[in-house]
Amino acid sequence: MNEAIEVSDLEVTFGHGTKSFKAVQGVSFTVPFGQSFGLVGESGSGKSTILRALSVLVRPSGGRLQVAGGPLPLHPPKTFRRRVQLVFQDPYASLHPRHSIDRILREPLEVHGFDRREERILQSLDEVGLPRRYRYRYPHQLSGGQRQRVAIARALVLEPEILLLDEPTSALDVSIQAEILNLLSDLREARQLTYLLVSHNLAVVAHMCDRVAIMSQGKIVEVTDSRHLRTGTFTHPYSQQLWASSQGYFRDPAVLDVG
């Protein structure tokens, strides 16, 4: 078994009856161990919902999910949670404001019964490039980039195999984005991690990922590799449109009349 993530015909429905909304409609893709896979699309396309389904934060209404070689259990044991970790978009919202960095990193270690906690905390700070003296600071004393480093350290301290990244740099300045993306690349290489990266930024995905799925309205319209993403060679018109919009602004009266 060399697939880290296997998603087949995934469906996620919110609500019931006539008011129900299918956020994900029959999505299938696979990510081999050690690869980095990107999900791109606009808001509402269902890309974050897929991450939530993979981390068992929402329950699928159909389809099959296999993570790390086994079917995704309905009530996953701690051992599963340890192997799959999430990093969220906004480091201002995803860290407990009244917990020190030390406590943020220590808590998952306690929950999962890890030994040598002191050592692991210090090691994880080193790994994400945070000075050890930041250990007893609180999130509000750190900058956005430093907070995102803490969020990454919190995920990595459990030694997961798979990292689900939900727009990890879109709340950051571009100079900080470069640092965080470099850090994520280094960590993937050092730890042989599998990444599933959600982003609306095509350039970020092309930089980070081997293969990419382009999503629109709950469906994957196209799966391609980063080489094709760079050159803009697509089969689906929506991918083409998304790509063209990412090239900056140029006058095109054709896009004007909507609504």
């Binding site: 571009v174 100079s175 470069a178 095509l202 092309a206 980070m208 990412s246």
Partner: peptide
């Protein structure tokens, strides 16, 4: 120049991004 250099680009592949 740093702001321009640290952006990942669709047009060119690089293994590392420049930092400022």
């Amino acid at each position: 120049r740093g702001l321009i250099a640290c952006l990942p680009r669709l047009s060119e592949a690089s293994s590392r991004l420049q930092t400022m």
